[in-house]
């Protein structure tokens, strides 16, 4: 069955090692492998600063939450970052329920996350 997530990527002006990745759809057990392959592909290309735009991400399940934590940890290990922006209320609340808001790098707006890149 076709994966229910699309990832699109765009440059961050002036930041050669950063990318904005827009998540569109649902992140769940059916597409975490695809998503992991994409994100780690960026890491392998030296794009270790990822801003994940969740504006069009409708849903994340427990497996998806797990990989977000994994991306965050892996990016930091590579001296990068995995910043999340534009979370919808339902997804934010699930992250809050599992106690991960302090573990993940979450911003309200894309501009804030871009400005926080070092």
């Amino acid at each position: 069955m076709e994966t229910q997530i699309q990832l699109t990527c765009e440059d961050v002006p002036g930041k050669a090692d950063a990318r904005i990745v827009r998540f569109i759809g649902d992140l769940d057990a059916t597409n975490v492998d695809f998503t992991t392959e994409k994100i780690f592909g960026y890491f392998d290309e030296g794009l270790v600063k990822i801003i994940a735009d969740f504006k069009q991400l409708r849903y994340v399940n427990s497996t998806g939450l797990g990989v977000l934590l994994h991306f965050n940890k892996s990016a930091k290990e590579k001296a990068g970052c995995f910043k999340i922006v534009n979370l919808n209320e339902n997804v934010y609340e699930i992250i809050e329920i599992i106690g991960a808001t302090s573990l993940l790098d979450i911003y309200d707006e894309l501009d804030e996350a871009v400005a926080a890149l070092v």
Binding site: N61, S62, T63, L69, I94, I98, A100, S102
Partner: peptide, 21 residues
């Protein structure tokens, strides 16, 4: 009672989340 997530364990939260919800 405490946070389910830590940055070293990417899996295994499913039923724990069910209990919380």
């Amino acid at each position: 009672e405490g946070p389910l997530a830590d940055d070293s364990e990417p899996a295994g939260m499913g039923l724990e989340i069910v209990k919380l919800l």
